[in-house]
Nucleic acid binder design. Structure first.
Lengths: 233, 233
DNA sequence: TTCGCCGGATGTGTATACAATCGAGCCGAA
DNA sequence: TTCGGCTCGATTGTATACACATCCGGCGAA
């Protein structure tokens, strides 16, 4: 893991990548919207070269589609695309939870419990209606999933999840979870943590699988309602 | 799927990408070997710009690792990395086989059977000891898996498999399969095709899962033997 | 001998220039 | 009016230039 909270020493490439990724995730670049290299370059005060590299990365991650000589645009996903990716993610994270239950070290277990605690605290304390609140909740959720997945000690699978499968969660960012759903998530986090600690791979895997599918269903419900956007930051 | 057998109208970027990918897959760039942009550029008679873009793509696919200001090198995988990726692939392809059994259209079924037939013909006819023979076998195998996976009609998951998970198979290229293993593969292909045609998702998924794990084990056996390289092309 | 410093060679990161392509609007002919 | 072709602005694809980081070998001092 190179840098985690580094801020100074990032290449232009990396800076552009993070910028675009966040803009897309948080919906400021809508689905289908065109990404013009020169505009992004001007906005971030860099040349087109790093912009192009960042776009290539996003393209292979699947966030962006580009056609030769015609530029790049944000990928548009159908409801069923998203559901499929959730299910794929359920399988992979389920697998990682099994591995975690087999391979986790005491440190890992502690990190998992800490992340679960932190999630609880965050959902109680932050204002769900603001962008910052949502970011905090999503970050806390990511932290739990990251702790779990890393406890499985399978770096390549972690990489797959991070680069290829993260995408859909991403588009979920503003598809808010209700307080009830968040509490349910919290309960699942606890159950998974306990199964991992107890060294019960099958249970851990099944619980995680189910937990992710709950996310899919929550997403699906939101998708079918009129979209409500939270207040901007 | 943009182009499949296009050869003329490829951007330099794409050309470099394909070149490097193949070189890595077929082992002419050994694990850990450094990739120097200017050398590749000179070799393919393009500038460094498209080379850099291709390297970024390979990097997010996980074939290559690069460090800031220090260049890129071919990723080195441990035996356990490879085993983990195989298992992840088993889960995802198992999932896709389930979907295929649910969603496949008559065309898809036909393509799957055709690919299975083709695989049989190829393993009977080609010389397993040459690079070209191996390429033909791997291509035939890929064709079966592609037909199956595409029958699941979940483009995003196909993308994930292609960009993130394909990698290990890749490193397997020269880890030859024995004739007995190839025949076993053939049998599994048939069984999977039948389960899909019969609309039996669970069986299709289980069979595919098992089939991929057989691949993992074959790989593992090869890994532990002294490496034999096939004659060069 | 060993350590540390320096300088050049090598190679990466980014900016910029220019050619090629695309697409929209215009114009004239049927 | 409608359609085909044309031109031009906008944008992408690639080459090239240059600044800077890293690596390595040599040299001198302790």
């Amino acid at each position: 893991m190179p840098e985690l909270h580094d801020v100074s020493d990032v290449s232009g490439n990396e800076q552009v990548y993070r910028h675009l990724r966040r803009e897309i995730i948080e919906g400021r670049y809508g689905p289908g919207e065109r990404i013009v290299e020169a505009h992004v370059a001007a906005l971030l005060a860099v040349s087109r070269t790093p912009v192009r590299e960042a776009v290539r990365r996003l393209e292979t991650e699947g966030l962006v589609v580009s056609e030769r000589n015609r530029g790049a645009h944000v990928r548009t996903l159908t409801e069923s695309d998203i559901a499929d990716v959730y299910e794929a993610r359920a399988r992979l994270e389920g697998f990682m939870s099994e591995l975690a239950a087999r391979r986790a070290q005491p440190d890992d277990i502690e990190a998992i419990h800490a992340a679960a605690d932190h999630f609880d605290r965050v959902i109680d304390e932050v204002d769900h209606e603001t962008v910052d609140g949502l970011r905090a909740i999503l970050r806390a959720n990511d932290r739990f999933h990251a702790a779990l997945v890393e406890a499985g000690r399978a770096d390549q699978v972690v990489r797959i999840l991070a680069t290829a499968v993260d995408m859909p969660i991403v588009f979920t960012a503003f598809s808010l979870y209700s307080p009830a759903e968040l509490r349910r998530s919290s309960i699942f986090h606890r159950l998974i943590a306990e199964a991992v600690e107890a060294g019960q791979p099958e249970r851990a895997g099944r619980l995680m699988n189910e937990h992710v599918l709950q996310g899919r269903d929550a997403h699906r419900r939101r998708f079918r309602e009129p979209q409500r956007q939270p207040e901007s930051a």
